[in-house]
Design a protein around this nucleic acid. Sequence first.
DNA 1: GTTCAAGTTTAAAGCGCTTTGATAAATTGT
DNA 2: ACAATTTATCAAAGCGCTTTAAACTTGAAC
Lengths: 345, 345
Amino acid sequence: MANKSMNLKQLAEHLDLSQATVSRALNGYPEIREATRNKVLAAAAEFGYRANSIARSLATGRSGNIGIVFPDNFGMMFDPHFLEFLAGAAEMLSTRDMSINLSMPDRNHESSKYADIIRSQLADGFVVNGPVRHDSRVALLQSLKIPFIVHGRTESEVPFAWVDIDNASAFQRAAHLLIGFGHRRIALINAPKHFHFAFQRELGLKQALEAAGLPFEEGLMFNEPQTEDGGYRLTNLILQKNPRPTAILCGSMILALGCLRALRDAGLEVPGDISVIAHDDVFPYIRAEAMRPALTTTRSSLREHGRRVAEVLNDIIDGKLPASYHEIVPLELVLRDSVGPVTPG
Amino acid sequence: MANKSMNLKQLAEHLDLSQATVSRALNGYPEIREATRNKVLAAAAEFGYRANSIARSLATGRSGNIGIVFPDNFGMMFDPHFLEFLAGAAEMLSTRDMSINLSMPDRNHESSKYADIIRSQLADGFVVNGPVRHDSRVALLQSLKIPFIVHGRTESEVPFAWVDIDNASAFQRAAHLLIGFGHRRIALINAPKHFHFAFQRELGLKQALEAAGLPFEEGLMFNEPQTEDGGYRLTNLILQKNPRPTAILCGSMILALGCLRALRDAGLEVPGDISVIAHDDVFPYIRAEAMRPALTTTRSSLREHGRRVAEVLNDIIDGKLPASYHEIVPLELVLRDSVGPVTPG
DNA sequence: GTTCAAGTTTAAAGCGCTTTGATAAATTGT
DNA sequence: ACAATTTATCAAAGCGCTTTAAACTTGAAC
């Protein structure tokens, strides 16, 4: 169908070498003489030879794919975040000549989905996205002995691999900053609390308040899927509180977008009347520094997470890292112009 | 690493049959006696046997993957739309035991990306997403003789496969409806005009106006990436026009969200003061029927497109459909409550 | 009872790579 | 100069499936 291109055998014949030698030369084995390797590389380039990944997989027993299943909460938790993560993973994998095997969860037998994919060797391991506080996928994958990594964290008896940011401490630091500026009533616009990261973020705020001897007010905690619309509506609710909170913490830039709009509509100045800090997942098309005022954020690139998670999963599959490996991606608190001291009145 | 499961040879031995027979039984070949097939099926189920997709691919010469490359305009065109499409494609493919090979475009040599993927047999064909009016990918893939399908359309000398909705006629019908209600000044909030679909939509509006002998006003055409924010800002611009347009056409539900908010902020009633029609890509989490007022829309599910595009691409790869196959997905005009007659004033 | 065709099943080749174990060539030591 | 190493290359096996071509069964037809 497509242009039948040269295969290893033909390349080897052309070079008057054995397939074994050509294969090794291409794959960087040390026992190949430099002169030979150069000849092989040159010929490969000349003919545009690329190893057939299928044949390689059959020989090595590795599919070269990592499996990513659409979050089953898709439609909730969702879109820009998941896609941004995907983009990072895809980017990283292409540098290692690997790919993503993307699939939808099977409503009926979601449990067998993973096993099926592994058994048919469509993927060598999985990424678990959008973990909830007690996520059953971890135990499932563990019992099936399938390599996996969680992006984020969940509560589990048995250790498992994960890569996450320190959500609690990020929001604690943000809150600490606000408290330092004299804020005492801080509202939180957050994702639904059954997500582990959302729960942790509220915890961080709580800790900062308690550390400062300030009361934690349940009534200032708002949870909603992270949409611009949600940010707008929740902010309007916040503004009805009496006395009005003097600062708002937003769980995502998308929520912040809605939040800022609501504040503008209400005729409030940031940071004059109210301070705002958001968590920035670094979407290329929503830039905190370009906003008016430039937004103070806790920042951690979701695309970067995608890259790192894919990398770590590969290393786990390769046995270079243990199945219990975990890592906290550092995160910055970027000071810009949306935080100021509380004004009396 | 993962649970070594049974392979064809072992299954055949267990059944005291040849691999050929078992393979055929499993793949539904007609020459297998019904009794034999049942035995095979039962055993396969018992042992949870799944054919190794890699080995199958090597034998058949088909990877079983379709390639999807992130739109290079990613960050523009984008997110919820692309992901929704992806979800549909993933869903469809899993019913055919196929997968998506998802990759990022290589900035440096995007042209070789496709060829590389085909040569290394990572995919059997490609979906071209988010085509612009003159999209170079079509000529590229054609010259490389790689099976592909365009989701949407583009201008090209040579015929190629595509699946699209009739954007022009959709917007023409929507405009026609508005005109029927007496509207004469209709504003359009649209994606950037270099995208083929956006261009077509404007064309449709223009045609409807001309057919009714009404003037087409360039100044009422607004183009912006399809974000809620964009819809909000552009609507505010529209409201400053004098005389004020009496109807707005929105290119997506996300734009419409922003549009409606701006109207609400301005204290305008829909459809009392102004009528609104939007194009609905059917996101599960933005429902036109749930809005206030329920929105009249042109409707065509992007997820459904993903399914159909994947299906057609497969059929083209299989040779069941010609490489010039194309199809216009029908689209509905759903009347709800956001359109009304022009009120004098 | 043969004969033939249709219906079933099988042995074996092959897909294109990696890798093992053997072999040949180059290098070293004595 | 010849054995002992080390280095570079090769032939062949094998990964797990599909598919071709051949072989074996039936059962009907004569």
